[in-house]
């Protein structure tokens, strides 16, 4: 691979990203390069900074030092850059965060209409095709409150996908779900990963990681302690913290 094509393949590059919450140093120099089509799973104990890290990538949290470049756009205080980056990164939250006052289809069609300036018919069509992708087109005219947790999370995925993002981020997408609903959400995510979407997933679903992840990052105390392929990480972890943590979640 030539240097040029490697350059073009990079979707996200962070260099020495640091962040503090007051005096708490939550991110202590995170440098990561994520290539197009790569599926990266981030795991680690709670408070290790993994959620905070992915939230800095679309400016839900501001980083204090270091550089973040998303698809060639430098994330700084320029509102236009922030908007560009946000419209390229789809995000799925632990608590779904669907808009309760809007029907399912309106939840999905809203951002394409407001941000991409689509007409109502166009946006509704797009929304329906996204709902088909997550296998719940029949719920289109219900309200979020009438759906199960698993269905709500799939609507949230459809809502993010409707913006046609280049990258999808998942922040513990199955942690708030009842066990029997986790599979339906993971299935959608596996399909998405296999379709070639660039994905960053914070999760402790190690089965999912083993099946689709290209790379695993183990976070602890604001640092990446260890990274590698699923095989290497699961079968032959190097770092004591990784061994200890995996022995508890596997």
């Amino acid at each position: 691979m030539s240097a040029q094509s490697v350059e073009n393949d990079v979707m996200i590059q962070t260099t020495d990203v640091e962040k503090w919450f007051g005096s708490l140093h939550v991110l202590q120099g995170i440098s990561v390069t994520i290539k197009k089509g790569e599926v990266v799973v981030i795991f680690g104990p709670s408070g290790s900074g993994k959620s905070t890290f992915i939230r800095t990538l679309n400016r839900l949290e501001e980083h204090h030092r270091g550089e973040i470049v998303v698809d060639g756009t430098v994330l700084d205080n320029d509102v236009r850059n922030i908007e560009t980056i946000r419209s390229e990164i789809g995000m799925v939250f632990q608590q779904f965060n669907l808009f309760p006052h809007k029907s399912v289809i309106d939840n999905v069609a809203m951002a394409p209409r407001l941000v991409r300036k689509m007409s109502k018919t166009e946006a509704d069509e797009l929304a329906m095709s996204m709902l088909e992708l997550v296998k719940i087109p029949e719920q289109a005219y219900k309200f979020p409150g009438q759906l199960s947790g698993g269905q709500q999370q799939r609507v949230a995925i459809a809502r993010a996908l409707a913006m046609r993002p280049k990258i999808m981020m998942f922040d513990e997408p199955t942690s708030a779900l009842d066990p029997e609903m986790i599979a339906e959400v993971l299935d959608v995510m596996i399909d998405l990963a296999k379709s070639g979407m660039t994905m960053i997933v914070v999760t402790h679903e190690m089965g999912f990681a083993r099946e689709v992840a290209d790379r695993l990052l183990m976070f602890d105390e604001g640092k990446i302690v260890e990274e590698g392929t699923p095989d290497k990480m699961f079968d032959n972890p190097q770092h004591d913290r990784t061994k200890e943590f995996l022995s508890r979640v596997l």
Binding site: N58, L60, E83, R86, S87, I89, G90, M91, F93, Q95, N97, L98, F99, P100, H101, M110, A111, L114, V115, A156, R159, A160, M163
Partner: peptide, 30 residues
């Protein structure tokens, strides 16, 4: 109106006034 609602709207690339007008206000009034 929960912080998560605002974050979800912002993460979708919605601008401040859109977030206020279409996400926060309708829920606040309800």
């Amino acid at each position: 109106v929960s912080k998560g609602q605002i974050e979800a709207a912002e993460a979708l690339g919605m601008r401040g006034r859109h977030v206020t007008l279409f996400i926060i206000l309708p829920q606040a009034i309800r």
